[in-house]
């Protein structure tokens, strides 16, 4: 077995890559939420001067990449790979948003877990000696996601309380071989988990078992415990999914509630902004990480974070055919120090 592997699903990075820069751009609703001060830019309207929501989402991706590069003082030629994905069919936000980037491109799809997958692959590429600088970036857009997965925006319909609100925003990170941290120390790649939930308006309940499975695997593989982390942060489970995930882990002997939060619950004010069960989408975890988590880690108020973006791997066709929702979560362990 490779000496970089721990247990069955975890990788311990021998030379942990450093997160040297992040950027996030969000929509107007996110810009009124509790994390508003952490974002680099808040767009004024959801079309952002474009003719369609899909084009606006591509622009979010493109402008976020530009911000990452300018913050890090890098030119596109210095970046070895860009790993990106989004929710739209054929990942068009990433493919079109990054087509002029002139950077070798790896398009991936992990639904809302994409940022975790992208950071994990990027960290492995760097630790494996295949790259010095990698950008991992994802986006989602409320309007383009509603159009693809649900109903037209102007249709007068009600959502059940378990439904979630797709975040409009793009977030990304630049990972480098050299840097002063925070560092990616471990990556636990999740398995597809499907406990039979069919209701696409209850993604939190569908995804929670996948998150719990990956977090449990991470603890078992690494020997770490919930107390090893200041913050365990799932992607977009919402209030119901968060509760289920915590209860599942507690039943396995890993009580996480003291250190646990969910990006979907942080990004909107549930009382005032009515996102029902919470935020969701690739941009939810990506912007919360690139904005809030990175800022707090560089300030030093968070030292060890287990970032677990979660994804529901469904399509409108699978939902119409009555399929249940396969889900996934990837855990990325990030630390401000690499002494351990």
């Amino acid at each position: 077995m490779s000496d970089k592997r721990l247990g069955t699903q975890t990788i311990k990075l021998e030379n942990p890559p450093s997160i040297v820069a992040t950027a996030s751009i969000v929509g107007p609703k996110e810009g009124q939420g509790p994390l508003k001060l952490y974002f680099d830019e808040i767009i004024e309207d959801e079309l952002w001067g474009e003719k369609s929501w899909e084009k606006a989402e591509s622009k979010l991706m493109r402008e976020t990449l530009a911000k990452i590069l300018s913050k890090a003082g890098k030119s596109p030629g210095e970046i070895n790979y860009i790993i990106a994905g989004d929710l739209l069919n054929q990942c068009i936000a990433a493919n079109f948003g990054l087509r002029e980037s002139e950077i070798p491109f790896l398009g991936i799809f992990g639904a809302c877990s994409t940022i975790g997958e992208a950071m994990g692959i990027g960290a492995m590429l760097i630790d494996g000696g295949f790259a010095d600088h990698v950008v991992s970036i994802t986006s989602s857009h409320f309007c383009s996601a509603e159009k693809q997965f649900r109903f037209p925006l102007e249709l007068g319909s009600q959502r059940p309380p378990t439904a979630q609100w797709t975040v409009t925003g793009a977030g990304g990170v630049l990972l480098s071989k050299q840097g002063t941290g925070p560092y990616i120390t471990h990556v636990t790649i999740g398995k597809i988990v499907d406990l039979g939930i069919k209701d696409s308006n209850n993604m939190g309940a569908a995804m929670a078992p996948a998150a719990a499975d990956t977090i449990l695997r991470h603890f078992k593989d690494t020997g770490l415990s919930p107390d090893s982390y200041d913050l365990i942060l799932t992607g977009d489970l919402g209030s119901l999914g968060k509760r289920i995930c915590a209860e599942m882990l507690e039943a396995q002997g890993y009580p996480i509630l003291d250190h646990y939060n969910d990006c979907g619950l942080m990004i909107f004010d549930r009382e005032k902004q009515d996102p029902h069960s919470g935020g969701s989408g690739c941009g939810c975890s990506a912007t919360a990480f690139a904005g809030f988590v990175y800022a707090e880690m560089t300030k030093g108020s968070l030292k060890n974070v287990l970032f677990v973006p979660t994804g529901a791997l469904l399509s409108p066709t699978s939902t119409q055919q009555g399929e249940s929702i396969p889900c996934i979560a990837h855990a990325v362990s990030i630390s401000t120090s690499i002494s351990s």
């Binding site: 309380p161 378990t162 406990l195 039979g196 939930i197 309940a205 078992p209 119901l240 289920i244």
Partner: peptide, 11 residues
């Protein structure tokens, strides 16, 4: 799991 989720989901 279906029963558990049904039971705890807000109505």
């Amino acid at each position: 799991y279906r029963k558990y989720v049904e039971q705890i989901s807000p109505k």
